[in-house]
């Protein structure tokens, strides 16, 4: 359907535009993140929990704000028509949204993932926790991909909010479910990292699903009939 080549300069500009529109909220989230790190660094029980909670809240906030700002608000405020009247194809638009959102999500996500792994490895916490943490982070990634896709494909704001909240809340049943799997649960408190085949399978499934969901969204988006 799209025979024209990708319009990278405009994609770059669109990403930069989303970034500028998102900057204030992102700045607030980054500030919250630094406060959270300081709380964790105070090395008392309550501040550690408060800090980690705040850190996760900030990660979720970043992703939700980013999606909301670049997709939901654009549609609600009728700025989508303005953007689509620029020299872009639907695919260009999709890519700009994907890149912009992935950057704003993946940077703090990966930083937190690395931080978590480091903390587990360098503190008296049992190293076996790494596998469980990876699975939980995998879920957050998948939940984010689903929220992003729903935001792009479905125009109803209600469904979008539902997708964001539901997918993130599913983290609880997931942790319970993982607790039921002996191959994973038995190694959580061990001091060695053991990747059970189940764990690897779940991780792979999470990663693959995330990519598939995003790709499918692109496919759907490019077959949409109206953009305003």
């Amino acid at each position: 359907m799209n025979r024209s080549p990708l319009n990278w300069p405009v994609i770059r500009l669109l990403v930069a535009k989303d970034w500028q529109l998102f900057q204030q909220q992102l700045a607030a989230c980054v500030f919250g993140g630094i406060v959270a790190l300081c709380l964790i660094g105070m090395a008392t029980g309550w501040s550690f929990y408060l800090g980690s909670l705040l850190l996760i809240v900030m990660l979720v906030c970043t992703s939700c704000f980013s999606i909301s700002n670049s997709l939901l608000v654009e549609r609600k405020e009728h700025t989508l028509a303005f953007v689509m009247s620029l020299p872009v194809t639907p695919l260009d638009y999709y890519l700009s949204k994907l890149i912009g959102n992935l950057v704003t999500f993946l940077v703090p996500f990966l930083a937190m993932l690395a931080g978590t792994v480091l903390v587990i490895l360098y503190t008296p916490l049992p190293d076996g926790l790494v596998v469980l943490s990876l699975l939980i982070f995998g879920h957050v990634l998948l939940a984010y991909a689903v929220s992003l896709s729903v935001a792009m494909a479905v125009e109803s704001e209600g469904w979008n909010i539902f997708a964001m909240i539901a997918s993130m809340l599913l983290i609880n049943p997931l942790i319970m479910l993982l607790g039921q799997i002996p191959a994973i649960n038995d190694h959580v408190k061990a001091d060695t990292i053991y990747f059970a085949p189940v764990a690897v399978a779940i991780l792979l499934a999470q990663a693959t699903l995330s990519v598939v969901v995003l790709a499918a969204t692109g496919w759907v988006h490019c077959r949409k009939k109206s953009f305003y």
Binding site: T79, A81, P87
Partner: peptide
């Protein structure tokens, strides 16, 4: 829509419900 990028580059477009940021 195949060559919409080329067309849109030379197109001015404003509808009543279009909004700016």
């Amino acid at each position: 829509p195949a060559q919409q990028v080329a067309a849109k580059s030379d197109l001015g477009f404003a509808t009543e419900d279009m909004r700016l940021f």
